[in-house]
Structure formats: structure tokens, C-alpha cells
Design a protein around this nucleic acid. Structure first.
Lengths: 262, 262
DNA sequence: TCAAAGAACTCCTAAAGAGGAGTTGAGGAG
DNA sequence: CTCCTCAACTCCTCTTTAGGAGTTCTTTGA
């Protein structure tokens, strides 16, 4: 005695799983489905929404409903921290010589990064806690975005926070026209005399805010993966916190743990 | 010129973010909201669904719509691999002495684990690829569930796969009444003479299947976090693959990367 | 006193209908 | 041939109306 819209969703789900409807295929129109199933259009729409929330179909206003193509991309995360540390003391010239980016960040050479300059802010309650400083401490904040060239789709959205007093020896900090610290966080911190001792990464998934949904071009019903990276110096003080927001429907994160031999 | 249901959702979202509506509070009933906003009930329901998909409210049939209480739980993942390896050669007695479970798995002593015995299966295409064996290779598969006692809520859902030929020296394997390998994967593998060299963990988020949604008691609109753990031996052969499925609305995963000193 | 029945609330499923808005392709004007 | 307009198709928003189903509290009857 299942509900009509669930039965219809089941039926379509079967067709998709069985491969009768392949990724990219257009489903019959809502009116067509309504006639076929002897149901009203709103009921059909209820069924389609279920499938949309499961990530099986994608609705396109004016065009139709389509079976979604799965596409995922792996982001290598923790393995690159040691690599980055090893290279922090290289000169710019040396870095250009070895310069592998693909392997380490998951970014390709054609991918686009949109930087924004650092802004001065006061620590909010949440971020103060993460940085281990009192609320209201002067911070530097910036957000940047990356677009993946091959798919012409947004790849991530990064916000990072630094304690102002720790890094003010860098003069390019508030200059909008310069990328003040090429070469990643580790290198950035090395230039102001900080040695990194440990990196913690906290991963969670949640529904996007409306702003994130727009920014990352997320279809309704998909969630975002959030990675909060906390960097500690060798004295175990927090020196950097950054939040990476990734589209949950096309990202995987890889963590590698090498173990010592017996 | 925003749409009515979006405007109403915005308004309610504001109230929640501003704290006028606190976690646990009941929202005005749908008919009440409809009267207040001079809109039809279905329009109100559209607005509420938006908020539900954002994880801000929870609908309860017959009771009302409520502001959700955030509750998350941290799962420490990669740091425990080395720890587990170090202890794999301890005897059962030694293990009971040191036996810390809380720190390492995120599990408390009162939490409930429901085991199922291993079943013999043939490797499917996907899982064969993950294990690096030909399709159809004899495998052992089992699924188990954990419930978190304090919240009386499901905590995870684990399916693990082993290559049959690697582990058949363990006699308790297919005995339903015994937990064949107390002490975790590393210990399990040690008993059949395998030394673990590396662990890879691939994290992704996706909408739950209808079965997972029921099993993990997920409210509509929330996704699951999936962690595929691949264990390699010291010769870099895959010896174990397991999928951990976690409720996205109440789980965070922590990865720690210690770095070498200069 | 106590349990069963019921009223009054809640959200859920389903219908039919009207107009809006985005997309596509056919046909005609230049 | 190229560009523009328009018709026809798509999904989207919103309404009104009806009954179903879960929850809670009050009333009623033993």
C-alpha cells in the first residue's frame, strides 16, 4: 500500500539502475509520465523530487529531466603536507624546476584560481575557538575560489584565517594586486619564520547554504564536503585555520597513512 | 521579485539564525503560517522543505516543525592505524589491560555493536577493482552496525571485504556464534600472518539510498559520509577493503598528519 | 481511579487548473 | 545565408479543495 509518488519513483529508479535509462538520457516529460501512470502532474513532480534528492536525476527548467552523469574527482589531502614542508625552504627558482602541482593539490595547470586579498577582521566566537585566541583578536581573512578547467565547473571555495600579529612582517599582505604568498600555506608560514609541526583535518558534510549552492553550482539536494584544516607549529600553537568547501556530488578526498615497519 | 516560498523561507531562516527561534522550538503550524503570510498551505510547505533540505528544521508528522539541534560526533580515523598496528602483537590479556577504546575509535564502552557473520560471495566488478583481484574471486563479506548509546541513535554501518584465500587459516571465520577476530582489522590480519604497511582512506558524501536512510534514521535531505578504507600489506598488495557509512548530519572525521622536524 | 474513546490539533498525499518562464526549432524577412 | 520572431514544448509557481494519518489532551464510562 505504498504511496503513488513512491511507487512511481521506485519504477524510475529501477529503470535507471537497470540501465534502461542511461546517464544523460532525458526522462519522459512530466505530462507524459502523468498520462502513463494515470496520475496528476504534481504527483509526478513529487516522485521526481525524490529521485533528484537521491542524486539520480537532474532537472533543467524548460528542457526536461535528465539522468545524471556521475563524475568525481579525487583531492589528495594529507600526503602533501610533508611534501610541502620539505619544499618550503626552496627558492622560487628551485620550486619552478621541480614544480609538480597536479599530484599534490589535485589541481591541473589549466585550472583557474580566483584570489581575493586579505581583509582585516575581528575573530568571531567560532573562529576564535578554532584558533585558540580570545574573541575579537585581529585576524586576516581571505576567500578564494577555484574552477576546474576540464569540466568548466567550480571545484572549491576556500576561506583562510591567520592571526594578524603572527604574520605582519610580510609587506605584501594587504596589497590587492599581489598574491602575497605563492607556494601554499607551509611556504607562506616559512617566510615569516614559522615551522609547522602538525596538521589536523576535520571533515564533515552538510547541506549548502544558499550562497554556497550558487557559488559551487550545486544541484538541489546535494551537500557540500567541508574540510577544516588546522595547522599547528612545532610548539603546538595554532597558526592557521582554513575551511575548504567542496561540491559533494563530484569530490572525493584521499587520506594516506603510512605505517612503520616492525 | 523573489518567489513567495523563497521569501518566506528567508524570513524563517533569519529568525533561526538570529536566535529568535531556538533549537528544539516548534515553528508556527503550516495553516498559521499560511494565514500570516496570506499564502496557501502548499506554498508554505515549499518554503519549509527548503529549510528542511538545509538542515535547519525537522518535520514531525502530527506534531509540528521544529528547529533542529545540531549534534556532531568526531570520529578519529587515521591516527589510530599506527596505534592499532603496535598493539596487534599484544596478547589478549595485555590488550585488556591497556584497552582504550574511546580515544581510538570514537566508540564508548556502552555503545552497541551488532555483528553479522562473514558470508562467502563472489567479487563484483566494483569491489574486484578495489581489491585488485579478478571479477568473481571468492571473497568474504560482512556487514555490521553500531548504535551510539548516549543518543540512542545509529552511528555507523560497515561492510568489509576480504580475499578468501588470504585468510582461510582462521577457523572461526564462518561460525555465526563467534566474533572471529576481536581487536580490529590490524589484529585480525596479524593472526593470519599479514603485516600492514599502509592505509588509504577515501572520503565522499552522497545522498543515502532509501535503505541507508532507514537504517541510519536519517531525516530527509541529509546525506551520508562514506569512508572507503583500503588496507595494504608491506608489499603494497590490497588485503582488506571496508566501507563505513556514517550519518552526515551528526558525524565529523578527524585526520591528523604529524610532520618531521627540520 | 483508570482506561478507552473522541475531539482537535498537527503534517501528508493527491487532485485540477491557471499563468509564468526558460529552451528549441521552424519559418519568414532581410 | 543569417538573423529574428514565434509557436510549441519543457518545467516552475501558486491556488483551492479534499481526505488521510499521526499525536496529544480531554472527556467519558466502567
Amino acid at each position: 500500500m505504498a504511496k503513488a509518488y513512491e511507487r512511481i519513483a521506485d519504477e524510475l529508479r529501477q529503470s535507471i539502475r537497470a540501465g534502461e535509462l542511461k546517464p544523460g538520457d532525458r526522462l519522459p516529460s512530466e505530462t507524459k509520465l502523468a498520462e502513463d501512470h494515470r496520475r496528476s502532474v504534481p504527483t509526478i513532480r513529487d516522485a521526481l523530487r525524490l529521485l533528484q534528492d537521491e542524486g539520480l536525476i537532474e532537472k533543467q527548467h524548460g528542457r526536461g529531466n535528465f539522468v545524471r552523469k556521475p563524475r568525481t574527482r579525487v583531492l589528495r589531502t594529507n600526503l602533501r603536507h610533508q611534501w610541502e614542508k620539505d619544499r618550503a625552504r626552496e627558492t622560487e627558482a628551485e620550486r619552478q624546476q621541480t614544480g609538480a602541482t597536479e599530484h599534490d593539490t589535485g589541481l591541473g595547470v589549466n585550472d583557474l584560481v580566483f584570489y581575493a586579498a586579505y581583509r582585516e577582521i575581528k575573530a568571531s566566537e567560532e573562529i576564535a575557538k578554532a584558533l585558540g585566541v580570545p574573541e575579537g583578536t585581529p585576524l586576516l581573512e581571505r576567500t578564494y575560489r577555484t574552477r576546474y578547467a576540464a569540466e568548466n565547473a567550480p571545484f572549491n571555495l576556500v576561506t583562510s584565517y591567520l592571526v594578524r600579529s603572527l604574520v605582519e612582517s610580510n609587506p605584501d599582505l594587504l596589497d590587492e594586486t599581489k598574491e602575497p604568498w605563492p607556494g601554499g600555506t607551509q611556504n607562506q608560514l616559512y617566510t615569516v619564520g614559522i615551522e609547522v609541526g602538525r596538521v589536523e583535518e576535520l571533515v564533515s558534510a552538510r547541506p549548502p547554504t544558499p550562497e554556497e549552492a550558487e557559488e559551487l553550482e550545486l544541484p538541489p539536494g546535494t551537500s557540500v564536503l567541508v574540510l577544516r584544516k588546522t595547522t599547528f607549529d612545532v610548539n603546538d600553537r595554532v597558526v592557521d585555520v582554513s575551511d575548504v568547501t567542496l561540491p559533494g556530488d563530484r569530490t572525493e578526498m584521499l587520506f594516506t597513512t603510512p605505517l612503520e615497519r616492525w
